[in-house]
Design a protein around this nucleic acid. Structure first.
Lengths: 252, 252
DNA sequence: CGATTTCTTGATTCTAATCAAAAACAGTGG
DNA sequence: CCACTGTTTTTGATTAGAATCAAGAAATCG
């Protein structure tokens, strides 16, 4: 198989290296998941809910999301994916997709067969631990989302979402582009698009943010965090790596 | 270590055997997670949020839940655990607990060190796959919960919750005991306890259920499913077991 | 049986949904 | 560069759903 993308360039390897130092062979295993990049237009669907699916995608560039559409046409967005993430990891072991995956911007995504992960499990217990960890962190995000939707009002939800995106984008600067229209944001937060507009205005009036044309500028991060009840530990609660620091014993 | 409980009796082994046939050695590995049963009173806490934790619990009998408490004292219940489940699986790799775990009834739970799971990963790739699968199914439940809370009104949420519990309890009969008061149910569904009461009345008035003293009787399951928009596939979407049917190649 | 918790019901308030229409903006082709 | 089109955002008016407050009824526990 020919590598279109050099391994050093791999988003997913970067992602993993943020967590732990990788061996040569581990880098190769991971980078193999990110060949064969395909382009998708903004709004294009990568997979349908309920459809048979034997593959995942790694996201190389752009933003994507997982969507669940209800019988009456309402939608709930469940994840926002950034480059380096794997789309659909939670569907390992399921033959049919639980959710729809859709590009939020023009993206490059690299399909690979689910089976490839099982192979990694067999070859590298260390990467197995890491994949387990990634799933665990995705669950942590889902949990935070449940709390957000279940127990916070619109202003708190939106504030929380903005802080979360800022943290995930790892921006030093307090300004970033959010490639989601207010209808999509509403579907993420469980509120109507009209109310998203009002809530943005409310946050502006409070002097917490400015937003214009999909650009978010945070004027008062502390204020946003206070309002939202953002749990600083939730993305920072860093793993207990002790058992991962030793090099892999088994082969590969 | 002395075995208080015979392996054949292990809840967690039963749970796994629902999914796939286990070898002798796999049964031993799993059953080892369920020795040393400890009793907890109804309402007792097994772990605090934010606390250092190097252990999981397997739940042997009774019901438990995971709770997130917010700064202002509001609570959101994130999971309801039934016998055979592992409490806190999602916190593998995190040194501190994300949520609080609390008994909903008097329970027996068996603590075991997180490390034990890593050992299982090293010894049995087949069980590794299964643990991944379990996490994946937990995520599927969290997703359904997000949709439930984000996009359904109180009647739909409660109806959905009742159907979900019925399915999870695997009851042929349409009557079961729900050991949660209406305040706890409200914290699960993201509505107030008062509104839970009204919503039960509403479902009774529609002739869908009867409920009294924590006992639920479903009078019209189809009606409940229709009202709630329950996705029949979501707990039924059964795994693609093909790659699990072959026996383990590696040792153990 | 009394004490405490849980459930029910009513009245009121608040938040957000819905409906509708205008304003702002982005993309297109001339 | 501008006029045209479609989309997105904003704003207002109204309605609906659920929270809150409060008090009485029912169930549970010791």
């Amino acid at each position: 198989m020919e590598s279109v993308i050099s391994d050093a360039d791999s988003c997913i390897v970067h992602q993993f290296e943020k967590m732990v130092e990788l061996s040569e062979s581990e880098i190769n295993l991971l980078a193999a998941l990110e060949r064969d990049a395909r382009k998708f237009d903004s709004g294009e669907r990568l997979a349908f809910a309920g459809e048979y699916s034997d593959r995942f995608y790694t996201l190389r560039s752009g933003w994507a999301c997982a969507i669940k559409t209800m019988a009456d046409g309402q939608r709930q967005i469940l994840d926002i994916f950034l480059p380096g993430q794997i789309l659909g990891l939670r569907e390992i072991g399921l033959s049919h997709s639980l959710t729809e995956f859709r590009a939020l911007t023009p993206i490059e995504a690299c399909p690979f067969p689910k089976q490839r992960l099982t192979e990694i499990f067999e070859k590298s217990p260390r990467l197995t631990d890491l994949f387990f960890l990634i799933m665990a962190r995705e669950q942590a995000m889902l949990i935070e989302r449940i709390v957000n939707i279940g127990r916070r009002n619109a202003a708190e939800r939106l504030a929380h979402f903005i802080v979360e995106m800022k943290v995930r984008l790892n921006q030093r600067a307090c300004e970033f582009h959010l490639p989601m229209n207010q209808s999509v944001i509403g579907d993420t937060l469980g509120i109507s698009s009209v109310h998203v507009s009002r809530t943005f205005k409310h946050l502006r009036d409070l002097g917490l943010i400015d937003n214009k044309n999909g650009q978010i500028e945070i004027n008062n991060l502390e204020g946003l965090i206070d309002l939202s009840g953002f749990d600083r530990t939730y993305l920072e609660t860093y793993p207990d790596w002790t058992r991962l620091t030793k090099p892999s014993k088994r082969g590969y």
